[in-house]
């Protein structure tokens, strides 16, 4: 694993993976979206509103997965001090935050006709909202320090503290008797019809591959801006006047 702590080597792999994930994401979206939104059967109770699920569920999974990547990257950064792990954690957080917000928003759109209210204070919804706040706190903390290194470490510790929330979100529908539906994918297999499972899996694939591509783009930008920062510092140290950023 430590072999890939070298940013150059890591980015080589990331850059090879990225065209493939982008292609898979495009293919899955092109096939999955029409199937999910037009040709898949409406639910016998929910009618066409069930189609919101094809966006909502992949977004929810991605929001959780992105946080696990952030927490995992932070743990690796704190334990082995691999900077690339922290850069991955940082790159993953805003993407996760956006999908978390998307999940909450689509859930509200669905809740209005189905539950009669866009929002209830049940365990799943509340813990997902806390996840969004954790993301925002994580992002805010990283930008609050003049010393970047100090911000990195504070962020990593916060990500680990917040990871307590992840199992709570995942098991909330089992631990508490909530209004939210139980999971579709369980150890025993899928609990929905195959005609609905196919578009759902396509959309999950599309979202996941899209996430990987976006994170790689953010990684590139982050590493480049670090390079520029170092170059400017070196330039400033050599006494050449530098224009303000």
């Amino acid at each position: 694993m430590h072999k890939y702590a070298n940013p150059t080597r890591f980015m080589k792999i990331a850059n090879t993976v990225m065209p493939w994930t982008t292609a898979i994401a495009v293919i899955c979206f092109v096939i999955g979206l029409p199937v999910a939104l037009y040709t898949s059967p409406p639910d016998y109770q929910q009618g066409d509103t069930v189609r919101i699920m094809y966006i909502h569920v992949p977004a929810a999974w991605l929001a959780l997965m992105a946080y696990m990547v952030t927490a995992g990257g932070s743990a690796v950064f704190l334990i082995w001090r691999h900077t690339i792990a922290h850069v991955i954690a940082r790159a993953s957080a805003p993407v996760g935050a956006v999908f978390c917000a998307l999940c909450l928003f689509t859930g509200m759109l669905w809740g209005k006709p189905m539950w009669g209210t866009p929002w209830v204070w049940d365990a799943r919804l509340t813990s997902m909202l806390i996840l969004l706040f954790l993301y925002l706190g994580y992002i805010a903390l990283g930008d609050a320090f003049d010393d970047q290194e100090r911000g990195d470490k504070a962020q990593a510790v916060l990500a680990l503290v917040g990871s307590v929330n992840v199992p709570i979100i995942h098991f909330s529908v089992e631990w508490w008797n909530t209004l939210h539906q139980p999971s579709i994918v369980t150890m025993q297999g899928l609990t929905i019809n195959a005609q609905m499972a196919l578009p759902l899996l396509l959309m999950v694939g599309a979202f996941q591959c899209f996430y990987i591509s976006v994170v790689v783009i953010r990684l590139r930008a982050e590493l480049l801006s670090a390079k520029i920062r170092v170059a400017r510092q070196n330039l400033a140290a050599s006494g050449v006047p530098v224009a303000a950023e």
């Binding site: 706040f133 706190g137 609050a144 916060l158």
Partner: peptide, 25 residues
């Protein structure tokens, strides 16, 4: 975590209040 941060007080609220929610509940 917020030692040495700019606007540490406000930041503290953003970081901690989400974690305080379960205790409040």
């Amino acid at each position: 975590l917020v030692l040495g941060a700019r606007r540490g007080g406000v930041l503290l609220g953003v970081l901690l209040l989400p974690l305080y929610i379960p205790i409040l509940i």
